[in-house]
């Protein structure tokens, strides 16, 4: 089946979200890079869609984790950590999104390269 760009983006994002959240529960954060890698190999819509969908999936995955937490207390806890660390809590939140998105994107970059390599090998 031929997957167009929009559909590819959506499917890739969904794969990254589902796989990414599952991998987060291994407690080893680095493993989320495999969500971007797998989505890129499966969907194979090139670097742009792969990068965008992986980052979006990474960010949405974190939002899902946040939704599983009692939101009323998340802010106070991060404010507390921020005050101790000397970093604004907003920056801490941004870092969580960036690191997760970044790891997914790194997987996507490698995955897209691998997908093209496989394609060329055929």
């Amino acid at each position: 089946m031929k997957i167009n760009g929009a559909l590819g983006f959506i499917l890739s994002t969904l794969i990254v979200i589902v796989l990414g959240v599952a991998l987060l529960f291994t407690s080893i954060w680095y493993t989320v890079l495999f969500s971007g890698l797998v989505a890129s190999i499966v969907i194979r819509r090139g670097y742009l869609i792969s990068i965008l969908s992986s980052f979006a999936g990474g960010v949405l995955g974190i939002l899902i984790i946040f939704l599983m937490l009692p939101t009323g207390y998340l802010g106070p806890v991060m404010n507390e950590v921020g005050a101790i660390a000397g970093i604004p809590s907003v920056a801490l939140f941004a870092l969580i999104f960036l690191i997760n998105g970044g790891l997914c994107v790194s997987g996507a970059l490698i995955g897209t390269f691998v997908a093209r390599f496989i394609q060329k090998s055929r």
Partner: peptide, 26 residues
């Protein structure tokens, strides 16, 4: 670039407690 990002995050996790502190599930 992908490998570079991973290396940066690994370094961040090895030399600072940031990755373990901000880990979304732990």
């Amino acid at each position: 670039i992908g490998v570079f990002i991973i290396v940066v995050v690994l370094i961040l996790g090895s030399f600072t407690p940031l990755i373990s502190i901000l880990n979304p599930t732990t």
